[in-house]
Design a protein around this nucleic acid. Structure first.
Lengths: 139, 139
DNA sequence: TCAAATGTCTATCAAATAAGTCAGGATTTT
DNA sequence: AAAATCCTGACTTATTTGATAGACATTTGA
């Protein structure tokens, strides 16, 4: 029941690009160093994002990547779907017995609601607005 | 972003037991055959459910398992937590940057809301109440 | 009392997935 | 030409998942 590093690092890349939106390209090297991640691994993740039309690449020295759309036009769900596949808690919901199928569909819709209503703009401009450190993380 | 067969099959076991609640023990063999699953694999799944106090075992011939509490007192979340670990879309939410941490927490709470508010009783007594087959499964 | 049915426990294993690495080529700018 | 960067595919490693096997303990009922 986890989102893998693909989706997580992909979101990291996209948030970094959103922060620099309108300021020219950012290289993967910069992003990898800033977040202590493998540049080569990020290359694998950004390829599908480019193919899906969320980023544009600019080759050559001082090149890098830029968002292909505005940060308000890209949702967290867009990114997760590209890198992790369809948002669904199980493969083959159709085959399940009705009671379980209804449960999976409710979970899927709940997660979808959150992901599709969170834009890159929100994620890039988020200022810590009072979730206390004492908040319980695991429940 | 998937719930594995551990959680799914565990839920299957518990729904079967809930259907037979008050009617004496049900053997894993019965459940395995009815759902076309490996009995040995189900043994591995029911061990943690027994340790967590959700089922009781009755040994010997004509033995099996029974719910240790009423079907209204056990939620889908109880079962998923025992078999899959804490409900959270990422490991180590604490370490994430605030924007992403907030996103993961919103997802976690959404999923938690569904799972903790669905009881075994609902799952066992579910009658197909009009989710049409044309419902889009992947969105 | 004994055989059959069932649960309990431990160990092992194969397949799939996730995560990351490596090597080298192509393109553009300076 | 040299440097920076993107691009591509193959490869490796670790972990998780799903499954199998077998020895053993307990209970029922003939």
């Amino acid at each position: 029941m986890k989102i893998s590093t693909k989706g997580r690092y992909g979101l990291t890349i996209m948030i970094e690009l959103a922060k620099k939106h309108g300021e020219g390209p950012t290289s993967l090297k910069t992003i990898a160093q800033a977040n202590d991640l493998s540049e080569h691994y990020l290359e694998q993740l950004i390829a599908p994002l480019r193919n899906a039309g969320f980023v544009k690449s600019i080759r050559g020295a001082y090149g890098g990547y830029v968002l292909a759309k505005g940060p308000t036009e890209i949702s967290a769900g867009d990114i997760i779907r590209v890198l992790e596949g369809p948002i669904s808690p199980v493969e083959g919901i159709e085959d399940e017995e009705p009671a379980k199928r209804a449960l999976w569909m409710r979970i899927r819709d709940a997660v979808k609601g959150v992901l599709d209503n969170t834009t890159l703009e929100e994620l890039a401009n988020h200022t810590d607005d009072g979730e206390s450190d004492s908040y319980m993380f695991y429940i």
